[in-house]
Design a protein around this nucleic acid. Sequence first.
DNA 1: GCACCGGGTCTCTTCAAGGAACTCAGGAGT
DNA 2: ACTCCTGAGTTCCTTGAAGAGACCCGGTGC
Lengths: 150, 150
Amino acid sequence: MQRTQFGEIACSIARTLDVVGEPWTPLILRDVWVGISRFDQIQADLGISRKVLTERLHHLVEQGVLERRPYDSRPRHEYHLTPKGAELVDVLMVMVRWGDAWLAGEAGPPVLYRHHACGEVARVDLRCESCGEPMHADDVDVLPGPGAAA
Amino acid sequence: MQRTQFGEIACSIARTLDVVGEPWTPLILRDVWVGISRFDQIQADLGISRKVLTERLHHLVEQGVLERRPYDSRPRHEYHLTPKGAELVDVLMVMVRWGDAWLAGEAGPPVLYRHHACGEVARVDLRCESCGEPMHADDVDVLPGPGAAA
DNA sequence: GCACCGGGTCTCTTCAAGGAACTCAGGAGT
DNA sequence: ACTCCTGAGTTCCTTGAAGAGACCCGGTGC
């Protein structure tokens, strides 16, 4: 298959996909996020092959998204989100919102999120960090930036 | 490879991945978003194989994310985002933010976004739709929802 | 009536995902 | 002292999707 490395494309989406674009990786991240943090727990929860899980975890640790931490004198480890990984979970939260809105069906969303600050069950909302107004696909113009390809 | 269908997992992330989780799909979506909307344009821009591009476009149209629209009396088409697709681009915007922050390197972000409402070059910010305060991975508790697995 | 162009399809090869068995280190039970 | 168990992988084989590139097809336009 010799999957193309997207990172060569001067695009932050492509670069992000090199970190979390492989199959299973976002789901592994979700598990770690919600507290499923040990190898066998993740394997059982997702039904992923052990080989692929090993590869993905190594890659995420290498990329600084997860941290591998021993929790026993025996060689036992848990995986935890680093700050870099925690910010990556933002992407998952937006995916959850979209999936809830368009794919959940009549059963409704499988999971709800309670916001600590206000105690409400709520979803995320995308806003402009400058003016605070909503900011979506149609609300922006795309301009070349300093790191644009020559 | 017989890639696992994630959709059977009761998780909006898994379901979303069934729509945009395959390799190249997010980049195709990005191209359509920024106005690269014809088959050969996308193919040239990404360097993707024509076979895979055909498959991905069909899948996205099937899922209601893209719309295939003729633009000539000859059989010529452009692909455009549907409302469902436009909301999906929100996910890309958050990926861009993360990629810019953690992977762009010294060259800086390759692309900038100007917000129509305020005219500023800005990034997206995740807020609670209920109270308006920032909402990130650590700011929420996860609860089972109505569509949770039995 | 022939070349051209957009928009695909076909074929072949290679490599990753899936599945399942095997390994290994450190306790715990007896 | 020996065996069992458990967490955390590793090894091996099979299958099928990604990549590359050639081929096709229907309308123009000359």
